[in-house]
Amino acid sequence: MIVLKRTLIAFVKEALRSAALLLLVTLAMFAVLSTAPGDPVSLFVNVQSLSADELAEIRHELGLDRSLPARYGAWLLRLSHGDLGTSLRSGQPVTVELWRTGWRTLLLAGSAMLLTLFYATMAAALSALGRRPILSAILTSFGYVLSGLPVFWLGYLAIYIATTRFKVFPVMMGVSDTSTWSYFWVPVVVLGLGNGTVSEVTRYLRTHLSTVLAEDYIRTARAKGAVLLKHLYKDGFVMPLTSLLANKIPYVLSGAIVVEQVFNWPGMGRLAWQAASDRDYPILLGVVLVSALFVRAAHVIKGAVQVAVNPQLAE
């Protein structure tokens, strides 16, 4: 019971902090947008064809004659109602576009993150425990190679192998048929192994595990012949893995942009790519906010889990 309460408090605390940070993100984004070159009016009308008076009127209607803080306030108010504006390209509300694509990216990035952590845990645990030195050396050095390989080439290779060797291709995602799920794992594997964080995550986990393994309580557990994992899992795995989840998810999301491009995965990354080509900045703004939301969500999970495991962190 007390664990539950503690966790809940930590969850709320972390969520509040994240909300404050997201507010800061909106402020930063507004600042960036207000430095954008060009007259915003020119997005709506042909500036040359209007007189100064008419222009001034349009400015007034759009609220552009007000001070920056007032505009930020108005913008934030609309944001709080879930109104992110409309896409300049498709004319659809940004939120609709984000709903359509966001879950796919979350699925891709989330699965890939789990794969990264799984691979790194294997390599790190084998190495730190000193078991199977050859295998652990192979896994570790392969991790180094993976973290240097450009993820787009890894994607090409995966597509090539999958089409020529396994004949499981080439289906475009988003087309609603059943074959998409057999294809799902290819981009996940590519992003999971190729997002460039594998070697770093492995190294971190190994160092952490070695430190924990050298603790007295682990020696005691070993001496009395207890199941090592039972004593090890909290400090050795849960804590670093949740930290890594929160810290590395931005890198995986960055990688997802490239991987979605390679695999034609109709997620947020492709949306962002398209928007960057079209200078469709309301969409990009939405993508920035949603990815920040994903990252902060990971931090909230991390905060809650870590406090549940280690009460000392509650202070």
């Binding site: 954008a36 931005p250 962002a272 928007a275 990252v295």
Partner: peptide
């Protein structure tokens, strides 16, 4: 604060925004 702010944003997403705004 600045650190946490920037750690919350995937770098490539941020760069795409910069690309869209300023080319």
């Amino acid at each position: 604060l600045l650190l946490q702010l920037l750690e919350s944003l995937p770098k490539l997403v941020l760069i795409l925004l910069v690309v869209a705004l300023f080319r």
